[in-house]
């Protein structure tokens, strides 16, 4: 699926450029994107490294364990697969909190940290585990208490009440997150038996 989307985006882009008679611009666009991907990666690297450093301190001090303990009752219901993995639970709690509070960059860095912790306890390293799927789906639901970036943009555009969006955004993102969790729950329970079949299919190919 991701292969198809990727191919479609690239082909559609190339086709539209060609149809407009601007074939020459294709390479330019590709090189420009390549450059900005690396530039973005470097910007992200600083942030990720910074948060990894801070989280390492928190981990050694036993802080992420205490945070995990507080969040445990709620998180275990959502991510039962992490029941016995305190470090992963701690990382997930922090990542979800950062995302919930609308701290976009810290959210990304802490979420990657959480993915790492969950990968440590994942049995099949190239396949997403159940907790990983649920975690990513919660993130995609986008539950947000304070949409900081949007508020800043609105203020910049001269809004009389830039933060009037807080409550509707919270409601809308809560609805989306519940929707996402329901889908996740339904698919996982329906597909429980399919897992084996898929593995066999791949082995047969």
């Amino acid at each position: 699926m991701i292969n198809i989307i990727w191919l479609t985006l690239l082909c559609a882009g190339a086709a539209v450029f060609t149809a407009k008679g601007q074939v020459a611009l294709i390479t330019g666009s590709l090189f420009q994107s390549a450059e900005s991907a690396v530039a973005f990666g470097i910007k992200l690297a600083g942030l990720i490294a910074f948060w990894s450093g801070i989280m390492k301190v928190a981990e050694e001090a036993g802080l992420s364990k205490s945070i995990a303990k507080v969040m445990r009752p709620l998180l275990i219901k959502l991510l039962p697969g992490l029941k016995d993995h305190t470090e992963a639970l701690g990382a997930v709690s922090l990542a979800l909190s950062a995302n919930f509070l609308g701290l976009a960059n810290a959210g990304t860095a802490l979420s990657l940290q959480a993915m790492e912790e969950m990968q440590k306890v994942n049995r099949q390293k190239d396949r997403a585990s159940d907790p990983m799927c649920t975690f990513i789906i919660i993130i995609m639901g986008g539950l947000t208490l304070i949409p900081t970036t949007v508020i800043a943009l609105r203020a910049q555009a001269g809004s009389a009440q830039p933060d009037r969006v807080i409550f509707p955004t919270l409601l809308a993102s809560l609805a989306a997150t519940l929707f996402a969790l329901t889908i996740d729950f339904l698919i996982r329970n329906k597909r429980g038996g399919c897992r084996k079949k898929k593995v066999e299919q791949r082995a047969g190919r």
Binding site: L9, L10, G13, A15, V16, I26, S29, L30, S33
Partner: peptide
């Protein structure tokens, strides 16, 4: 992919 899709 997204860049080409957007720029075009």
């Amino acid at each position: 992919a997204v860049g080409l899709f957007r720029d075009s």
